[in-house]
């Protein structure tokens, strides 16, 4: 069984490995010792702390993995605090541009107003322009062109003005 400081160093190294390799989850077992790490977002928001919650299992039973996940999600929410989400109001296909040859309506760093069109969702053969309905700067685009999206799926994260 490693000491507390040694564990912390190991975890820090593992977080670095996860970041560099864009890993979402990592689990290491040495006999009864177990370290499991999970990140809420594969690509954390720029400038936000990484949403990783290190949990160590000590003793024969260790700590169930579920509890690690719960912790990770909580951490994810905390790291996104203060950001507004633009969600899809309908089920459909996401298009980032007004026409296939056009520039994207918005990208990371774009400033939006409530009436700014941020994308198109095609549903039932009809194009629906989606408006930001908030003011701020786009900090994350979570969907790619042509992707199927669900009702309520987060499309963009916006840092409010």
């Amino acid at each position: 069984m490693a000491g507390k400081d040694a564990d912390l160093r190991r975890i820090k190294r593992l977080i670095k490995v996860m970041k560099e390799n864009e890993l979402v989850e990592i689990e290491i077992k040495h006999g009864d010792d177990k370290i499991a790490l999970k990140r809420a977002q594969p690509q954390p928001v720029v400038g936000q702390p990484i949403a990783a919650v290190p949990v160590m299992g000590h003793g024969p039973a260790g700590i169930p993995l579920e509890s690690f996940s719960a912790g990770a999600e909580e951490g994810g929410r905390a790291s996104l605090a203060g950001l507004t989400e633009i969600k899809s109001p309908i089920v459909g296909t996401f298009y980032a541009t007004p026409s296939p040859d056009s520039d994207a309506y918005v990208e990371n760093g774009s400033h939006v107003e409530p009436q700014t069109v941020v994308c198109i969702i095609e549903a039932m053969k009809v194009m629906n322009e989606i408006k930001a309905e908030t003011s701020g700067t786009i900090v994350e685009v979570l969907v790619s062109n042509g992707q199927a999206v669900e009702y309520g799926q987060v499309l963009f994260r916006v840092k409010p003005d």
Partner: peptide
């Protein structure tokens, strides 16, 4: 192409005009 609502269909057409095959 049918839009539910848009600022101007002429503006959308202008975007599509970049590609001559349209």
């Amino acid at each position: 192409v049918v839009f539910n609502s848009t600022a101007s269909t002429n503006d959308i057409a202008a975007e599509y005009s970049r590609d001559k095959s349209n």
